[in-house]
């Protein structure tokens, strides 16, 4: 524990008052250590998620069934890599080099989002991920437009803009499949059945805003449960109107507009994000391998560029 001297304590108090009243923070500004640490960890996890989110989808670039789908899926994955680039740059400017972030990621020392720890089995998964995983993500990301750290909020505009194309692409894949053969329709239903539990965990367990230090520093401004409710309100009716079902008998919209659902298994969420998901180790092993194979490029080309 480092002890705060009186001056640091004063500065911390006024910094907190500044961010809580809507004030913004720039890279070169003084910020409390706690703020910098939490912010760095949060944005790093966001970056890791974009980067790891590439893996469940990239195999399907090669299997995409038409030229148009192949182009759209490649563009989506390219956007995700681009988001990782934008996010790691912000992390780097906060003081943690990208190489260290990547080392920590493949060593399992830092986390990435739960949904990217699951396998993608069929082309139906490609549609469900692009439509619903990206829909869930855009809800959190839109809320981050109000983040107190301005460089993060600024890149979120580009990220949200690009995510909106992914949702369209995903919905188009889904609509084409549900209006296709019985087997194609079944691809969607089967994928939805598998993805629903991870989707319900996506926004995290409910933490009251007043107990959440991320909300206190105004890094986040949207409580987890509010994000999940927004997701359910926006997308469950869209799923149902296609004649598809969701594997939760309790799922319904109350008269007060609040959605009821079966409590997700939060222990599973914790286990999954700490590297014990069905595809966690395979994905990390793949990243380790691909990083080893291109290590010489970064070493020679980048190092010699000094």
């Amino acid at each position: 524990m480092e002890t705060m001297d009186a001056r640091t304590e004063d500065r911390t108090e006024s910094f907190l008052a500044h961010v809580q009243s809507g004030g913004l923070v720039e890279t070169g500004d003084w910020m409390p250590d706690e703020y910098r640490k939490r912010l760095t960890k949060f944005i790093e996890m966001h970056a890791n998620s974009e980067l790891m989110g590439v893996l469940p989808e990239r195999d399907w670039i090669l299997r995409a069934p038409t030229l148009q789908r192949k182009l759209a899926l490649t563009a989506k994955i390219q956007d995700e890599v681009g988001h990782a680039q934008l996010l790691y740059r912000v992390v780097e400017d906060l003081g943690k080099p990208r190489e260290v972030c990547l080392d920590d990621l493949i060593a399992g020392k830092s986390k990435f989002h739960n949904v990217f720890h699951y396998p993608t089995r069929t082309w139906g998964d490609v549609g469900v991920i692009a439509w619903l995983v990206d829909a869930a993500a855009i809800i959190s990301q839109k809320a981050l437009l109000k983040c107190s750290y301005a460089p993060y909020a600024r890149i979120m505009r580009k990220i949200c803009w690009e995510e909106s194309f992914h949702i369209l692409h995903g919905r188009d894949v889904i609509l084409t499949l549900v209006t296709g053969t019985d087997a194609q329709r079944e691809l969607v239903q089967e994928a939805l059945d598998r993805w629903w539990a991870p989707l319900m965990m996506f926004h995290g367990n409910p933490i009251p805003a007043e107990d959440d230090p991320m909300v206190r520093w105004r890094i986040k401004s949207q409580p987890n449960e509010e994000a999940r409710q927004q997701f359910l309100e926006g997308y469950v009716p869209q799923v149902w109107e296609l004649g598809l079902t969701l594997p939760d008998p309790k799922l319904r919209r109350g008269d007060d507009g609040v959605w009821a659902y079966t409590e997700p298994d939060w222990n599973e969420l914790m286990a999954v994000v700490s590297g014990h998901g069905p595809a966690s180790q395979e994905r990390l092993a793949f990243r380790r391998l691909s990083r080893t194979e291109v290590d010489w490029v970064a070493r020679t080309v980048l190092a010699e560029a000094a």
């Binding site: 990239r58 390219q78 890599v81 790691y88 291109v294 970064a298």
Partner: peptide, 12 residues
């Protein structure tokens, strides 16, 4: 290579 290029800018 999409997603696994030597560095992120190159990947894009």
């Amino acid at each position: 290579w999409t997603g696994i290029a030597p560095f992120l800018e190159e990947d894009v």
